[in-house]
Amino acid sequence: MNHHASRFHSPSSSSILNQGFSRESCPFTSVSWGQRLIGFELSSNDPVLLGRAEKIFRPWRSRPPAEPIQRWWVEPIGGRSEELPGRWKIWSDSRAKVLFGSTIEHALMIVEFSAVDNLIERPDGPLSLHGALVEKDGKGVVILGRGEAGKSTFACALWQRGWTLFCDDTTLVEAEAASAYPAPRRVSLRYPSRDLLGEELWVRILATPSCDRSSEGCLFHPDEVDFKERSASATLAALIFLGRRGSSVGAARLERLEPAHALLALLPYSNLIRRVQLGEAIRSISPLANAIPAFDLGRGPLEEMVQSLERLLARGN
């Protein structure tokens, strides 16, 4: 991979000029983004792709770390981007496999998702939970559940009622500090969410600058819809399990889990379970289970689920 790196890190030999772009009109050859101390860098000699990457990774570009943990390169196959439909070649310094994207948007989605996969699988990476992160009145809530449990649907229902939506799928957690922050990936909505959100909001989402359609729905930044400024992280007030196996909680009702049971319930949703031995995972997640109250929330009418959660937070758990 190093020969690729030297190729794109040497502007004087770059093919930018050959493509008819002056270096002044293409001020960068790479885009960096990251969360906390984990950073990524994407290089390309295609200014259109880099311009698009700037939009997609914007929320995580304010504090790029000094040294990226992973570098990506994306280049068109067989010439200029204007000659699309072509295919885009994608590779990185930490994976042997070369990937291909059919469009700029598709190529960037691959980088976006692969970077998050890399982040959560790194042995020295942060604790992550498979769940959505939302916040209201300074109280952060992680919504956990298996695939299709309704995490995104519930998170979007809260968003529509004034909550801040940080992310829908992967939440990074600092267990000792009881704080959480979103993995650097756009929110993903599936087509069935269109009915929940309503046509007007769906159309607004599709019109946002960073929105891309995928085969399953669309990816977007919620702050381009609600124009709310988001803090970098949220202070956690509750962990909510949707459809947890073994739970018999009634519809839209909340039932508190004892911390030890919350710990065991959290394990399957954490990246540690694949990364370290169970004992170490238990040790790492214990502070979170001790500090943050966890609840089962029974699935029911969304409005009632929202009200249950808002009542819980209003009375301070």
Binding site: E258, A260, I282, N290
Partner: peptide
């Protein structure tokens, strides 16, 4: 290995 979580102890056998 033991971890104290709330009022309970979680034991893990290596």
């Amino acid at each position: 290995e033991e971890s104290k979580v709330g009022e309970r102890v979680v034991l893990y056998h290596h």
